[in-house]
């Protein structure tokens, strides 16, 4: 690779900062929807690390499914990232449905009020 590409630890610093921001949001926000948005930030940080490691350290192998190319880089990190996005979409759907159900029950989605099962 040319030195023009950023080194991989730059991507890891970026993903760490994003993940830490997401953790702070999950711990400090009161609104359930805001907590879900912080979760999306953390999913995105994981995706950045997966794709960066796949790009720089991908396994080189030959798939039988590829007829025209030899020694294809394994896209396994990108495929993991796609599955993470799928799970994030499912989680957002279920989580927002839960938030709306909780709002219908408690007339608010303040997480400090939803403490029926806390202790």
């Amino acid at each position: 690779m040319s030195p023009a590409d950023p080194p991989i630890h730059f991507y890891i610093y970026l993903a760490t900062i994003l993940f830490v921001i997401g953790i702070f949001g999950c711990l400090a926000r009161r609104n359930a929807i805001a907590i879900l948005m912080s979760l999306e930030l953390m999913f995105n940080a994981c995706n950045i690390v997966l794709v960066a490691f796949c790009q720089r350290h991908g396994v080189t192998y030959t798939l039988q499914a590829f007829s025209r190319a030899q020694d294809i880089e394994s896209p396994v990190g990108q495929i993991y990232a796609i599955f993470v996005i799928i799970i994030a979409a499912a989680e957002a759907a279920v989580g927002l449905a839960l938030a709306i159900a909780a709002y219908r029950h408690y007339k608010s989605i303040n997480m400090d009020n939803i403490n029926l099962l806390k202790w």
């Binding site: 798939l63 499914a65 590829f66 294809i72 394994s74 896209p75 990108q78 495929i79 796609i82």
Partner: peptide, 9 residues
């Protein structure tokens, strides 16, 4: 590449 991998491996 991603499509072939998703459909094979």
């Amino acid at each position: 590449m991603i499509g072939r991998s998703l459909m094979s491996t």
